[in-house]
Simulated scan of single mutants.
Amino acid sequence: MTAEQQEIGLSDKIAATVQAYIDHLNGGSAEDIVGLYAEGATVEDPIGSSIRSSRDELVEFYGIITGLDSRDATLKWTKIAGDTAVFEFTLVTGTAGMKFEITPVDIMTFDDEGKIVTMRAVWEQSDLKQL
């Protein structure tokens, strides 16, 4: 297999993982989302916050989102190059009769199997809107 063929294969794996990430934000469990991550992966969400690096920390982090009354994630666009994907999505969540919307840009790197190695989310508190 040529380097170009490997690149195409990885790009397809990355695209599938990004879509699965959005799908799991919509209806999966914290375990489903964390299952997309490689062993030893890190999450920095948002950039500048503490880096989560253990499986337990990732499950706890995504458990906050998956524990909400409602959630609706919509992928807006994705760019993939090499082992990296950058994508924007809108996430509308609901809890206790209130709804919130945020549109982060995530930067993820991946291993050869298409598992997430690093995730960094670009957003700040002022991006969180109450609907």
Rank of each mutant, 00 (worst) to 15 (best):
L36N: 06
Q125D: 15
D83S: 15
Y62F: 15
G82K: 07
K129T: 13
L75R: 08
E7Y: 08
Y21M: 02
K99E: 09
I14V: 12
T90G: 07
E60K: 08
A38G: 03
S29K: 10
E113M: 11
T74W: 00
T118G: 09
W77E: 15
R120W: 12
G27H: 03
M108Y: 07
G35Q: 12
T66K: 06
T66L: 09
P104Q: 07
D112L: 01
E31R: 04
G114T: 03
D72T: 03
Y62E: 05
V122Q: 11
L58T: 07
S49L: 03
I8Q: 03
G35A: 12
L58S: 04
I64F: 15
F89H: 14
T42D: 00
S126N: 14
W77V: 02
K79D: 14
A81G: 14
I8C: 11
Q130Y: 12
S49K: 12
V92F: 09
Q6R: 15
I65M: 05
G114E: 02
M108E: 13
P46C: 07
Q5M: 05
D56M: 04
V86S: 12
R52H: 07
K99H: 14
E31Y: 02
E57N: 06
T2F: 05
A38E: 15
I65N: 12
L10T: 00
S50I: 08
R52S: 07
S49N: 13
A85G: 09
L68Y: 05
V122T: 13
G82W: 12
D83R: 07
V105G: 03
E124K: 09
S11F: 05
M119E: 10
Y21N: 10
G94I: 07
H24M: 08
